[in-house]
Design a protein around this nucleic acid. Sequence first.
RNA 1: GGCGCUGUAGCUCAGUUGGUUAGAGCGCCUGCCUGUCACGCAGGAGGUCGUCGGUUCGAGCCCGAUCAGCGUCGCCA
Length: 592
Amino acid sequence: MTQRRAASCGELRKADVGQAVLIRGWVNATRDHGGLIFVDVRDRFGVTQAVFDPRSGEEEARVAASLRSEDVVAIGGVVRARPAGTENAKLPTGDIEIAATDLSVLNRSKTPPFPIHGDGEIDESLRLRYRYLDLRRPHMQRNIILRHRAIKAVRDHLDAQGFLEIETPMLIKQTPEGARDFVVPSRLHPGAFYALPQSPQLFKQLLMVAGFHRYFQIARCFRDEDTRADRQPEFTQIDVEMAFPTQDEIIHVIESTLAHMFREALGVDIAVPFVRLTHEQAMADYGSDKPDLRFGMKLSDVSAAFAGTEFKIFSQALARGDAILAFVDPGGAARPRREFDTLAATAVELGARGLGWISFAGDGVRSSLPKAALTEEMLRLLRERTGARTGDALYVVADELRAAQTVAGKLRVHVADQRGLRDSKTFAFCWVLDFPLFERDEETGGLMPAHHPFTAPAHGDESLSGDPLALRAQHYDVVLNGMELGSGSIRIHDPAVQRKIFSVLSYSDADVEQRFGFLLEAFAHGAPPHGGMALGVDRIILLMAGGDSIREVIAFPKNQRFADPMMEAPAQLAPEVLRELHLKTDIPKRRL
RNA sequence: GGCGCUGUAGCUCAGUUGGUUAGAGCGCCUGCCUGUCACGCAGGAGGUCGUCGGUUCGAGCCCGAUCAGCGUCGCCA
């Protein structure tokens, strides 16, 4: 038997002609010409055509004719150039083929429930049920390989920067605030439960106390909240922490890591440093703390332009101290009136009290505002403030400042979507800095941390005096194309400051001791100043891949109800297992 | 938990105003075919129209309920 080199299905070229090779993979397609039989063999590296000719192997040709999609085969033969005129320019291996002399069928496949080659739309629950087949499809192969490259780039880069990858436990203690936890019952401790980490936050801070100086982890995190297209009950973070950092040092590390990821995984050079915005500026200009900078359409405060307006809604708003904000829809004057009405309805759905629009058409100004309410002077001021030009439309909302910003920000993104300004191949990064330290909890009316309670106050605010809502934090977010990629902060390392934060948040002393006593104790043993960041891997890969659901970049995701339709998780436990765990279930009866 | 959209062949979908035997493309099966590459040609099989109930002489189509999937709001310190 001739010596054969094992080759992948993607590597053979003209230069390999004459070699005896063995390729193994899945049958992508067969073309049976009665005499000649072509078999396309696929593996993750590519597709190679094998040709069976009954004249050089009658039995092999007979078996080849029986091959079906997704059968697993090993084919031996000699690489030869395809006859002139039959090359396939669509395949990297399209200049050659394998003159097959040997064929082993390693495994037969049932007819697949959906086509494997090609990326046609298939019902997602079917894809998840047969995820191992779905993952064979080109789109998913690309995404999973992309993910590998991106994460490898993170490891390489952070390792080169002196970071150590350290694992932290998955079985930890529940912390009552934040998202709901997934819990794990303890057999050895009847009635007690572990919680799965929502993030390695406390452990990475303890690793800084432990003196590891620079830590990272590709960390799995768990949150028992309802899923969205960009959310899963378990997800992956690039978790980073540094001792003795300045905010700029952390920002630099994260920028260089992201740049390395995009270059190594995607071949895209992203510009560093990223644009920096304060939280206040982001809200004022874009109406969002995660602004999409791929397009302009900044918000303008046009309250002054409407001073003394006869338009009641606006005059009353101004009297209340509300803000009137506007942004330009470039070319929007070409819209038919019906579209403005639809936009107004959309704005209300997004939370607006209403939407005013002004269309600066070439043949005159049209508006939803009463004519009498729009003086020439007002129009002049509006155009001056917003930069609206003839041919543009202007959208105006009035509300309490934050509410007006938020709704205008959402509408801005909506209009940009309509205009096709959100190109998935453009990557517009930015930093949002100087977040508030606390926010008002809408439900309880109390204070809650804007980030988490370990975030250090801004320089000058350490005393926590004055209005808590006016305090700034050393908290920074990195944002890409309107999506928050990650959040970070300089942490508190002084136990006294940490206790003060807990007290502002109205945690009782007993509560603090019970929940965070170990952390405060650790801080009392020489905690270095430290800070870091966590980046959402799934979202980053999603944006790299240009998709719209993180399920597309996770090998085995859960569906919207947290279930895995393939292995049918979650599932009930056998009674003896429950007994061993000291558990009794109490399942509410379905209402009829 | 609320709301919206979807559910018809293995897959992707069409199905008119409620009216005879529910269609197409792909896939699958059989046969033919020696240069195809989503090969081609001929033939064939394949349906609980998500489920249950109602209206009607008659329901894939109308009504109600329900289940499932996706999206969205709540939620995500």
